[in-house]
Amino acid sequence: MIPLQLKVNGEPVAAEIEPATLLVELLRDQLGLTGTHVGCDTSQCGCCVVHVDGVALKSCTLLAISAQGSDVVTIEGLATGATLHPMQKAFHECHALQCGYCTPGMIMSAVALLERNPDPNEAEVREGLEGNLCRCTGYHNIVRAVLAAAAEMRGG
């Protein structure tokens, strides 16, 4: 077992883990943060995307020990109390989810996309979400939601 210390959604976390523990396993099984989903478990689908030191990564393909000392943000860390993050609100308002399985990863990828490009066009949104698969929506409303959130976050 290896001692691990990191921050998750702003809170310091200390855990004892096996080296083979994946970050998503730490989050879901040890910390009970089940908002981060496991879809394909092969880094294709993007359900498990979280931010590690501000960078969007697939937590099913990252050793938890690699996040030693890092600042991890999951879907649970986006809202402020009862106030949804603008991206969560836009997904809700634009009907950007059906079954909801891909949604946490989709939202985390979309937030990271806007941090790098606050004013993307539709093509840039689609390209930015290439690592996230959705089997319900056909993506159209997801793209609409990201564009709406971008406008709101720019204050437009």
């Binding site: 880094s43 990564l57 393909t61 930015g128 690592g131």
Partner: peptide, 9 residues
């Protein structure tokens, strides 16, 4: 290469 999250890592 890959997708944005893969390129990040």
């Amino acid at each position: 290469i890959g997708d944005p999250q893969v390129r990040n890592r």
